[in-house]
Design a protein around this nucleic acid. Structure first.
Lengths: 222, 222
DNA sequence: CAATTGTCTATACATGTGTATAATAAGCCC
DNA sequence: GGGCTTATTATACACATGTATAGACAATTG
């Protein structure tokens, strides 16, 4: 095992390094995530700062991302993707409607705890930053909405409890959960728990309300 | 009328100016608002930039605000205040519950059109910036919630249609309207109209849902 | 092993930032 | 008007940022 191999991957203070053999987008994204916190939004990260955190020269950044905005979009997409799969898995484990709501929201909050920094990108800055940035967030939200919409339709037909404007129910739930999640980010665990409870009641209201309006309309149309 | 009087208040290119007789917090806030737009959030404004827009020297800023954050907080408070009075007025003109919802949301959207830049501060950056900043936004939201909460209780007792967890209904409505309003900001007039319609349906769902849950609980408790 | 290519780094520059200091003009009271 | 306080400005400094350029190393070819 040569020293070259030993030095591979980490350039500590000890070795005179001046070189990092391989960098990929992952390293940079990971470094960027560590910088994100309650006081740093991804839209205020500077290229140099990210490069510094990643232990690379500022210019090396350009080999992997054209912009800092491109980095932000990559982070947004990742956050949206992981969050969606986590929730989908939770949803698949549940069966009836109430437990689906509960387990989905629980999964959301757990993921929020596990990858707080990453989700910060999604939840806290929906409308700040470049166009590409905002568009990426919007796309994630829309994706969530349509998935939820399908679920709602499936569930309501199964339960024979039809919904009025299921699309708007999905949109409202998505926006509400994301907004509430954003405020839950810096809070402590017990407060997060309380917020999760609130979310569930709110979602319940939306679904019950949609059902009620549906009933009202069909009865008045008969 | 001396030239000194003539020069008062405006230092154009023409006069050798080098002086501005009096500066207000108002002037600075107004200048900051002009800088805010779809691509500039208040948290990315620089002191120098605001000073430049206000036509004053960078250091003069300090005589009126300690920070740029203090400016931001002042803008947030103002946005919250004006929005609240506008909505309250609209609400006072209406009488029954449905028309209150409609007129409140209409007032919200009109205000959003009229002072788009100012409201941007409130709607688009709830969780980005300094602590003082976030706290100010949160305070405005909470204030809205409690006012709405009172209204809901009053209306529901008048209509003899009690609500379950009226506090959460108020919170959900507030968060939802603000979230939707934030996405409506850069959109065109017809899209704003559509969003307003969506808001009303969502709010209706929340209230009907809360009523429905209330009925369910009282019937099961009897 | 030697040459080449692609990647990372060092240095540098112009620009923008927050703020300290000192000077200057306005407003005001006597 | 003369002197005082206060508000505004000009100049300056140290620092951070994005990026251009050129050089140095690693890996990959032949």
């Amino acid at each position: 095992m040569t020293t070259a191999v030993m030095n591979a991957g980490f350039a500590t203070e000890a070795n005179p390094p001046h070189r990092k053999p391989h960098i990929d987008r992952e390293d940079i994204m990971a470094a960027a995530i560590t910088l994100i916190g309650p006081h740093r939004s991804v839209s205020t990260l500077s290229l140099r700062e990210v490069a510094r955190a990643a232990g690379i020269a500022p210019n090396s950044f350009y080999r992997h991302f054209r912009d800092i905005d491109e980095l932000a979009v990559a982070l947004i997409d990742r956050a949206g993707g992981t969050l969606r799969t986590v929730i989908r898995e939770a949803r698949n484990r549940a069966t009836n409607a109430p437990s689906i709501i509960r387990s989905s929201i629980d999964a959301f909050m757990e993921q929020l705890e596990a990858e707080e920094q990453l989700l910060h990108v999604l939840l806290c800055e929906g409308s700040v930053g470049s166009d590409a940035y905002k568009q990426a967030v919007d796309q994630v939200l829309t994706h969530f909405e349509s998935e939820l919409h399908e679920d709602l339709i499936r569930l309501s037909t199964e339960a024979e409890a039809p919904l009025h404007r299921a699309d708007l129910v999905a949109k409202a739930i998505t926006r509400l959960v994301f907004a509430m999640g954003g405020t839950a980010l810096d809070k402590g665990p017990e407060e997060k728990e309380a917020i999760a409870e609130q979310m569930m009641v709110m979602v319940l209201f939306l679904m019950e309300g949609s059902e009620a309006v549906c009933k009202q309309q069909t009865s008045s149309n008969s």
